[in-house]
Simulated scan of single mutants.
Amino acid sequence: MACRRAGRKLRRCRRGGASVEYGFLVALVVLAIFAAIELLGRANHEIWTNVADKVTAAS
């Protein structure tokens, strides 16, 4: 009987749902930031490698 009441109470409780959704949104934003940093890092590395190769070839 106590388990039934607890189950009904949990089904009616909606307070935690919003925080879980916000948590998922934050996780997605963090993943997007990591992906952007990774892509920019690779592009930056390629640019500076190209510059270093040209300086080496010019000297």
Results as ranks from 00 to 15, higher is better:
6 A>F: 11
21 E>R: 12
37 I>M: 11
42 R>H: 02
45 H>I: 01
19 S>M: 07
20 V>D: 08
8 R>M: 05
12 R>N: 08
32 A>L: 12
44 N>L: 09
18 A>D: 10
31 L>P: 01
58 A>E: 09
39 L>K: 01
45 H>S: 07
37 I>A: 13
35 A>T: 06
17 G>N: 10
1 M>D: 07
31 L>D: 10
47 I>R: 02
30 V>Y: 09
35 A>V: 03
48 W>V: 14
40 L>E: 05
6 A>W: 08
58 A>G: 01
33 I>T: 14
15 R>S: 08
35 A>P: 00
31 L>S: 11
52 A>H: 08
55 V>A: 12
29 V>Q: 05
12 R>W: 04
34 F>L: 15
29 V>A: 14
53 D>F: 12
33 I>K: 05
27 A>G: 02
52 A>S: 15
24 F>G: 02
2 A>W: 08
56 T>F: 05
28 L>I: 02
33 I>M: 15
15 R>K: 05
49 T>I: 11
17 G>K: 08
57 A>E: 10
59 S>V: 15
22 Y>G: 06
44 N>R: 03
34 F>M: 13
7 G>E: 13
21 E>I: 06
28 L>M: 07
46 E>R: 03
24 F>L: 15
44 N>F: 09
13 C>Y: 14
58 A>D: 07
12 R>K: 03
36 A>R: 05
35 A>D: 07
3 C>E: 14
51 V>A: 13
21 E>L: 15
53 D>N: 11
17 G>M: 13
16 G>T: 02
33 I>N: 06
27 A>P: 00
8 R>P: 00
56 T>H: 07
37 I>N: 05
6 A>P: 00
27 A>N: 06
6 A>T: 12
34 F>W: 10
21 E>W: 14
49 T>Q: 11
23 G>D: 11
18 A>Q: 10
29 V>F: 13
1 M>Y: 04
37 I>T: 10
25 L>D: 10
30 V>T: 11
12 R>Q: 04
24 F>W: 09
21 E>N: 04
43 A>T: 02
37 I>E: 11
42 R>M: 03
24 F>I: 14
46 E>Y: 02
55 V>N: 04
50 N>F: 15
40 L>C: 05
51 V>W: 09
26 V>I: 09
7 G>M: 07
25 L>M: 05
24 F>Y: 09
31 L>H: 03
18 A>C: 08
49 T>N: 15
39 L>M: 03
56 T>C: 08
38 E>M: 08
23 G>N: 10
7 G>C: 10
